[in-house]
Amino acid sequence: MADPVDDGDDAGGGADASNGVPRCVVETIDDASKGLDLCGDLFRSEPIRSTPVTTSLYPGRASALLRVSNGADTVGVAAEEAEGYTLTPLGAGAAAALADVLPIDRPSTLLGAPGDVADVAGRWSERCDGAVGTGTMFRWYRLAELVETRKHKGALRVADTASIDRAASWMVAFGEDVGLPLSSDAAAARVGDAIHEGRLFEWVVGDEVVSQLTISPARFGVVRINGVYTPPKLRKDGHSSAITAAAAAQQISRQKVDDVVIDQPASTGVTNRMYRRLGFVSVWDTLAVHLIPGPSRR
């Protein structure tokens, strides 16, 4: 990763104050607890839209967080993961500041609000004569009021270590389905963490696991349901609907949880309709694009 620039002079890494946009400073935060603290002003003001970033931070673990500030307030945050960067909503000057420090020597993925992604990707591509690949739109929902669904066979349970191999392979398959590929090693690490922390849930019919999902830690009152996956041969029997409803009901009853959110590619009509039937309402969209450096930069 390129070293972020403290834009105290006229170097890159900050927005141009000459046109009325505040000059911004980008700093790297390598500790999750510190990131949650230093960026808490933005996270508290945008708890749902910051969820893709906040739910990737685990106190006690290393992180790679880019904080953009205007000298007083946090105006944007980018979390680095193996696949690229995930953005919070960006304030004035934040897109330019981030674009000026993102690496230009390797491809990566950029995920965030469509306008913010366009602003960052456009300026980044000018730096390296790069290209921006076709994007995937994700629709985000929050639970308004859970709608009782017809009873499905099965029960919700917390996964244990016996599920690691299967769950990791399903997580890889989920990434392929939604257009955000994940390596086997990365999937195994995520699954291992989720099982250790009691955040991987399964829907079990008889002795067979037919669906799975993960639950994020609660961050600023928000919990994210992610990775809802049912193998193709087991679909159309309501397993995804059943596990989502059961997990959402369990989470919204927790004292620290104000909202339960979930996201899905906007192009998958069946799943989007399922979430709306369960009582989720659309609150915002994000866009994932691939950043491809120019030939001379690779």
Score class of each variant (00 low, 15 high):
residue 4 P to M: 07
residue 4 P to K: 03
residue 7 D to E: 10
residue 10 D to E: 03
residue 13 G to C: 02
residue 13 G to R: 09
residue 15 A to Y: 08
residue 16 D to Q: 00
residue 17 A to K: 08
residue 19 N to F: 12
residue 19 N to K: 04
residue 19 N to S: 10
residue 22 P to K: 00
residue 30 D to S: 14
residue 30 D to L: 09
residue 32 A to E: 04
residue 39 C to M: 02
residue 45 S to H: 08
residue 48 I to D: 07
residue 53 V to D: 03
residue 54 T to H: 00
residue 55 T to L: 10
residue 62 A to M: 13
residue 63 S to G: 05
residue 74 T to P: 02
residue 76 G to W: 00
residue 77 V to Q: 01
residue 78 A to N: 07
residue 82 A to W: 04
residue 88 T to P: 06
residue 88 T to C: 10
residue 89 P to S: 02
residue 89 P to K: 01
residue 92 A to E: 10
residue 95 A to D: 05
residue 103 P to N: 05
residue 107 P to H: 01
residue 110 L to A: 00
residue 118 A to W: 02
residue 119 D to Y: 12
residue 125 S to G: 05
residue 126 E to A: 01
residue 127 R to S: 00
residue 129 D to C: 14
residue 130 G to R: 02
residue 134 T to A: 15
residue 134 T to L: 12
residue 138 F to N: 02
residue 142 R to C: 03
residue 166 R to I: 02
residue 170 W to A: 06
residue 170 W to R: 11
residue 170 W to C: 03
residue 171 M to W: 04
residue 176 E to G: 14
residue 178 V to H: 15
residue 190 R to C: 10
residue 194 A to Y: 15
residue 198 G to C: 07
residue 199 R to Q: 09
residue 200 L to E: 01
residue 201 F to K: 05
residue 205 V to L: 14
residue 207 D to K: 09
residue 214 T to A: 12
residue 217 P to Q: 02
residue 218 A to G: 06
residue 224 R to G: 01
residue 225 I to T: 06
residue 225 I to E: 01
residue 231 P to R: 05
residue 233 K to H: 13
residue 234 L to M: 04
residue 243 I to G: 04
residue 243 I to N: 07
residue 245 A to Y: 08
residue 246 A to L: 14
residue 249 A to I: 05
residue 249 A to F: 07
residue 250 Q to W: 13
residue 250 Q to N: 13
residue 251 Q to V: 14
residue 251 Q to G: 03
residue 252 I to R: 07
residue 255 Q to L: 15
residue 257 V to T: 12
residue 257 V to G: 09
residue 258 D to H: 09
residue 258 D to I: 04
residue 259 D to N: 12
residue 261 V to N: 03
residue 261 V to I: 07
residue 264 Q to V: 08
residue 272 N to I: 03
residue 273 R to Q: 10
residue 277 R to Q: 11
residue 283 V to R: 14
residue 283 V to D: 08
residue 285 D to Y: 10
residue 285 D to R: 13
residue 287 L to K: 14
residue 294 G to N: 05
residue 295 P to V: 05
